[in-house]
Design a protein around this nucleic acid. Structure first.
Lengths: 155, 155
DNA sequence: TGGTATAACATGGTATTTTGTGGGATTCAA
DNA sequence: TTGAATCCCACAAAATACCATGTTATACCA
């Protein structure tokens, strides 16, 4: 069993007429060690699909519980948005998943999907949207070098 | 198991037509004790490739999670930038890795690679870029002697 | 200390496996 | 029975493991 577990790299795969996509082999190999399925949902902030292992959503649920009130509107909203949208996707013997219409539409994906590793999770973009996003990020990071220490307090 | 674990020295190896390079035997011997693969990505600040063990990125992932909010733009930007670019490279029985086009291009490497140890990580340069970089560093250190104490607070 | 034998390494080429992708066939539910 | 989802098979391209050889560095012995 591997010690670390990170989604990495940027991989471009085709989406066929049925809506099937190969999960990049790297991702698959990792996922397989723990499960046979991944969870996908529409990103809350970007026109893309997000994917991860169910574990992560479990952690997120705990975080939300800790950070917000049980009866609060925020907790309601967050849980609705994420868990109301998320779904499990199992991959077949060749390693493909069948993405839903809803997800594809939200990401503007037709025949090509760009998988972008994000550590504990990953994103799936259309080539056009990803190009824009990548430029945006690089521009922003060029301006302000990221700082990790003490950012929370400052915000 | 060794106590210390540092990439050191500067080693020049050839890159063949397929993009294969021998990992310096010193590096390999260390890496082998923990893993059969290394992670490489484009340096954020220089025209070179950086490499390290997956552990280091795992630590970084945790740091990012701790320092930023799950839904923040900062976390999004950072994780995309770092993990979207990184990739695992396993070395074969002779100790070579196959560098990707993207990485080679970013570093301007064609047929020769310069490995430079940097402690927990290392860098891979083209001979031309490395020469420039080395001069730059030496010049800078001549002007301002490095200080270790209290640098963090001043920044 | 010098010379030789030995082992380790870098590097070139070849064979094998993996992976992505297309097209049916089969099952399940509406 | 029809449409959608799932499974299975097949092929081509690419990634990866394996084998072989010249060269360099290391160890050993006189």
């Amino acid at each position: 069993m591997r010690k670390v577990f990170l989604f990495m790299d940027t991989i471009i795969n085709k989406v066929d007429a049925k809506g099937r996509v190969s999960l990049p082999s790297d991702y698959r190999a990792m996922v397989k060690e723990l499960s046979t399925e991944i969870v996908c949902y529409r990103s809350l902030t970007s026109p893309c699909i997000e994917g991860c292992l169910e574990d992560l959503l479990d952690k997120l649920a705990t975080q939300i519980e800790d950070a917000t009130d049980f009866f609060s509107e925020t907790q309601d909203n967050l849980t609705n948005l994420i868990f109301g949208d998320a779904r499990r996707f199992t991959f077949d013997s060749t390693g493909r998943i069948l993405l839903s219409e809803k997800l594809l539409k939200h990401a503007g994906i037709t025949d090509t999907a760009v998988f972008v590793g994000k550590g504990r999770k990953f994103q799936i973009w259309s080539p056009e949207n990803w190009e824009k996003e990548e430029q945006r990020i690089r521009a922003e990071v060029m301006q302000n070098r990221p700082v990790l220490k003490r950012e929370k307090e400052e915000n």
